[in-house]
């Protein structure tokens, strides 16, 4: 029993970090542009396909180089989205940008299907395997997800707080008008933000390949769960997303002890509704 619980917690933690990353990615775009990006599940999909279907399977490139290529591609795709889609929509009512990003999501989904086909693409050996610690058998994917996500979160914090580009991004998120008057190029800063956000999507994409396979619906509900993580933890605030994500991931995983596994997706939505009713500012109570 104790072992099962521990395994569930580790699995939950891994999923929690994935939700946390999604939430962080929502947050930095929301803060930088005041826009909600509803295409990011598709960017996760695109990152996974670029890496797996294109670079590894079609081009036969080795895994590490394929990862680097994928990161570079997703960054520039993000920059492109910022200039072509986000910037023109920034000054219009929110509904336009929401519609715009949903449409972009459709385009990416159909594009992926057109280029790489409808069938799941097997990617043998990528991040798979198990680790044995005494009696405990842990899925290697979970450990890798936890490590990569934790490093990424820490790196992001250092980048945002210690570098000149990161500080400029924070200024833009706090006060766009004033940022321009400091001499910050707001368009460029927003584009870098979008690029980084797309890179995070790509990383999420390759991390979840061993969990959900490389297929068209691999992202499942992680987009909406990442959004729920933000609300539960405190929307618009990076530590809030981390706390919310981990909480949802672990609770969801542990819920399979008491209810059939098929119902575990309900957990995040129950939490979302409860928090919206009882504590809309989230666990960390941060006022955006």
């Amino acid at each position: 029993m104790a072992q099962t619980v521990l395994q569930l917690i580790i699995g939950g933690l891994a999923m929690g970090f994935i939700y946390a990353l999604v939430s962080i990615e929502y947050t930095i775009i929301w803060n930088a542009s005041g826009l909600l990006n509803f295409s990011h599940e598709r960017l996760i999909l695109l990152g996974a396909y670029l890496f797996g279907a294109q670079f590894v399977v079609r081009n036969g490139i080795s895994n590490p180089i394929a990862v680097v290529l994928m990161l570079i591609c997703t960054f520039f795709i993000g920059v492109l989205i910022s200039y072509v889609l986000m910037r023109p929509l920034r000054n219009l009512p929110l509904v336009f940008s929401v519609t715009g990003t949903i449409m972009l999501g459709r385009i990416i989904t159909e594009g992926v299907r057109l280029i790489w086909g409808n069938n799941p693409i097997p990617l043998v050996g990528w991040l798979e395997g198990t680790i044995k610690a005494g009696e405990l058998v842990i899925n290697r994917t979970y450990i890798i997800i936890i490590i990569v996500a934790a490093v990424l979160v820490a790196a992001l914090q250092i980048f945002l707080n210690k570098t000149k580009v990161g500080t400029a991004m924070r200024c833009v998120s706090q006060n766009k008008k004033a940022a321009a008057f400091m001499g910050i190029d707001v368009d460029r800063s927003s584009a870098i933000t979008m690029g980084i956000s797309a890179v995070i999507c790509g990383i999420i994409g390759i991390l979840i390949i061993p969990l959900f396979q490389l297929k068209g619906d691999m992202t499942g509900m992680i987009g909406i769960k990442g959004f729920a993580a933000g609300v539960v933890g405190g929307f618009g605030y990076i530590p809030g997303g981390i706390v919310g994500g981990i909480l949802i991931g672990v609770l969801e995983s542990l819920s399979t002890l008491v209810v059939p596994g098929i119902y575990k997706d309900i957990v995040s939505f129950i939490l979302l509704i409860v928090f919206l009713l009882v504590r809309p500012s989230g666990i960390l109570g941060h006022k955006a």
């Binding site: 200024c171 706090q174 006060n175 008008k177 008057f181 001499g183 910050i184």
Partner: peptide, 29 residues
């Protein structure tokens, strides 16, 4: 701004979630 024409905006427009010192440092961006 790079040509060193500085505008102090109406309504102050400071960066609320940064320290006073960080705000000043941003002024020299």
């Amino acid at each position: 701004v790079g040509k060193r024409l500085v505008y102090i905006p109406e309504g102050r427009e400071v960066f609320p979630k940064m320290s006073v010192k960080d705000n000043l440092v941003m002024g020299a961006y």
